[in-house]
Design a protein around this nucleic acid. Structure first.
Lengths: 251, 251
DNA sequence: GCAATAGTGTCTTTTAGACAATATGTT
DNA sequence: AACATATTGTCTAAAAGACACTATTGC
């Protein structure tokens, strides 16, 4: 072993994180789903201090003994609350300051997850009294949430709305298979405005991140619609142009 | 005081962060500048363990007694290294896992800063032996950096390259006043390819985030060029379309 | 005048938006 | 056939790319 390594080893032997004043570090989740023609976020009622009895984003501390990385912490929390195992999960942003948590300097890594609304069973984990879907109306903010969670939620909604304009993100709000009209509807719901059918379909086909499910159709009292599914090899597509959206409101 | 508040107060009296196993939390900075016709990142040589003597991104721990929030920590670090006080500063992403730091589970909030290359004085703060500008070539990664800093740098470069395509970001790499040609050159340097003059100028004017400096010109052995400066009321502009960039390499 | 860079104009290409037309199922 | 929604086509509009042209300085 080199002298350099020896020296580093010596340093580590005496290092103890408890000797330092460090901030709290947590992971919080903005879990989004489309249900009942509206975008919804999952909130939980806190069962423990601080902010006991307040509604909050699901989240918690990193388990330094079991979590491999931040994403693992986020996935663990998501699984605990929803049972969903393979969502679309993306880091939103970090938040951290002196005042957001009464316990002291605190930071959080906020993630957002998109999940298909079907077959979600809300489970009440430890420290949680209740969980519920809260509808996102316009750009209005949620009611009074614990910590700075109202702010985090706002940032998340903005990010998702924005990303819908130029990426294939919204497919993750739909189940395995879906029709183009259903996909268009999801876009309209998230954006809060109508989208031109023809332009939308041209754009999606151009993006080439979907494939037809052979011989699979959605039937109704009208012409059947082709079912599509995501192409697993194209997890995310970015369009070179945003939907400029001069179109009127969604119906 | 309500029973609820009483209860929360009681909880906080007994709370002590040192009772828990928590991860390390730091803030790291990717400081970028254009100098000598190339994009450069500021690296420092670590003076302390771990990774003593290794090159790393500047950064450090949150000072829970003095820093108000994460941004303040980042600004403090930036000021310590460069003397720059009002850069463009944006949070890049959080990174955190079990293995990135030999001291144990560790997280970092990575920021990137864009600074004009003029009049930067590199200062060696505490725990730092040396600081230097490292040139970013193509998409190649930096040499062996401490921790996962090579990865963080890579993500930062990607983010900046991407953002240059659809936003007014690059003005922050230039001094107070500059010509459109100089701005175009910065775009070309960051993107690594040539940009069409006419299209570029139309786009910039369309964006309307610059204003002419009255009666201010850059002289040379050619036609003088109008000097421009940022419009303070339009800190960032996003274009509805990316520069698709079918153009050849930069000269 | 010549070199060099600043700045503009014109034509083409691409893709979204508007909106009409056609297709195919159910009732 | 009537209806409802799926799917496609046609025309227009907006903005970028290619590239040529003009403008203004120093030498």
């Amino acid at each position: 072993m080199s002298a350099k390594q020896q020296s580093e080893r010596e340093f580590l032997r005496h290092y103890n994180i408890h000797d330092y004043d460090v901030p709290l570090t947590s992971v919080d989740l903005v879990i989004l789903a489309v249900r009942d023609e509206g975008l919804h976020v999952l909130l939980v009622k806190r069962g423990e201090h601080p902010f006991k009895e307040h509604w909050a984003l699901p989240g918690g501390f990193i388990d330094v003994h079991h979590d491999q990385d931040l994403q693992a912490t986020a996935l663990r929390k998501l699984r605990e609350k929803t049972g969903v195992d393979t969502p679309y999960l993306e880091q939103l942003q970090g938040f951290g300051n002196k005042t957001r948590d009464p316990r002291g300097w605190s930071t959080t890594f906020a993630y957002f997850a998109l999940i298909p609304s079907e077959h979600i069973e809300l489970t009440h984990g430890a420290n949680v009294e209740a969980a519920q879907w809260y509808r996102i109306d316009g750009s209005s903010v949620a009611p009074h949430l614990a910590f700075d969670h109202a702010h985090i939620l706002e940032v998340a909604i903005q990010r998702v709305r924005n990303k819908v304009e130029y990426s294939s993100l919204p497919v993750h709000l739909l189940p395995e298979t879906f029709t183009l009209s259903e996909l268009q509807r999801v876009h309209e719901i998230v954006l809060g405005r109508a989208v031109d059918k023809s332009a939308f379909r041209k754009r999606i086909k151009e993006g080439d991140f979907l494939e037809e499910v052979p011989n699979a159709w959605r039937y109704g009292s009208n012409r059947p619609a082709q079912l599509y599914r995501r192409r697993p090899d194209r997890p995310m597509v970015f369009f070179p142009r945003v939907m400029s959206g001069r179109t009127e409101e969604a119906s």
